[in-house]
Simulated scan of single mutants.
Amino acid sequence: MPEIPLQAMPISETPLYLLFMLSLVLFLSDWICRKPFFKTFGIALMVIVLGAVLANTGVLPTRSNPTYDAIFNYIAPASLFLLLLDVNLIQLRKTGLPILILFLLGTLGTVAGVLIATLVISDGPLFDGMYQALAGMLAGTYTGGSINFNAVALHYKVMDQGLVYTSAVAVDNVITTLWFFVTIAVPVALGRMLPAQRRISDSKNMAGPHPKVEDEAANLSIRTLSLWTGLSGLALVLTGWITEMLYQAGWEVPFMILLTTLAILLAQIPALHRQKGNMFLGSWGIYLFLAVVGAYCDFQALGAAGKLALLLLGFVSITVLMHGVLLFLGTYLLRYDWQMAAIASQANIGGGTTAMALAKNFGRNELILPAILIGSLGNALGTYIGFLVAGYL
């Protein structure tokens, strides 16, 4: 057996120690977020907060090191790839045209909201050179969820500015939580004022929730664990090779765009799509990434966070408000029902999981499957829209 060499670095920066502490952060975050009071905060925000607390008390390093770099460069992109393997475009054709129209209308409202927000809240030193990237991140996340938020952030290295990224995550979590309550209340209020809206039910989609939702936390077998780790590693190698090849040919295409495209193409393979565990494994990797993001946040710099948080809150509020106005106005003109519009909005703002929860809350079982599938479409579209907005600005 080979001898373990003496450590040439402080124990707090060794890979095994960091893996233990980061795993502990995830364990504690999941445990805390199961408590009634903390459920509204969400595990993503809790992971960042605990990572920041441990880093600023000296338990975790606040500066870059090889372990952190490996998580940013390999674990995070591989996890995004695994999460995107749940996008099934063939099944999406079965969801029915009305909810798909409303979802796309909500996407248009998000993009319009981001562009209007840039006119109201301009760039400044508090954004630390990340203004365009933040706009792209918000356009992406309010098209389909946090997968897109992190995909854009990874490309523009927003996580290197820990305060900016953490503030954006905190504001995003608050607005997303509040919007869930808005989408519960608005259909009730509008239904009383404008009760003539027709209710659309798609009887073809009564089969129940998407199988992947029930299997998301399924135990990984040796076979599936080997499949996902091997496939994600191969995807990173191929994407890196294609990115370099295109660059040499004069085409500078973002790595994450190519990785997203590859994941969507592979997701259409039925035999691969039926496998279990990719969502579970991908989620774990993303939370590990967020724990490191929290560790990069230096509390000594939080003096400037107050005004930055207010600016981000204003930016996000304008974006989400414009999204809601355009979506519900379109619903009125198209004479679709308000509950379907609220579910489509949640697919944009919160993702397929919250859209599914809202459909259950309304008792609209026929919309559970469409809600999850348009959420998957949001995951697919959001990265492209995020990069387009960031590039345009």
Rank of each mutant, 00 (worst) to 15 (best):
T14W: 03
S23K: 00
F27W: 12
D30H: 06
R34H: 09
K35P: 00
L54I: 10
P66K: 01
T67C: 10
N73D: 14
A76H: 04
D86S: 15
K94L: 11
I99A: 04
L100E: 09
L100W: 09
G109Y: 03
T110N: 14
L119N: 08
V120M: 06
P125C: 09
L126K: 04
F127M: 04
A133R: 01
G136W: 05
A139P: 14
G140E: 04
Y156V: 05
G162R: 05
L163I: 08
V164M: 03
Y165S: 10
A170S: 14
D172T: 05
L178C: 14
I184M: 15
V186I: 15
R198T: 14
S203I: 15
A207Y: 10
G208I: 09
V213H: 01
E214M: 15
R223K: 14
E244L: 11
W251K: 09
P254D: 04
T261I: 12
A263D: 05
L265G: 13
L266T: 10
A267F: 00
N278A: 12
W284A: 14
C297M: 12
Q300L: 14
Q300C: 11
A304G: 10
A309G: 08
F315N: 08
L326Q: 02
Y336L: 12
W338V: 08
A342I: 02
G352P: 11
A371C: 06
A380W: 10
G391H: 07
L393W: 04
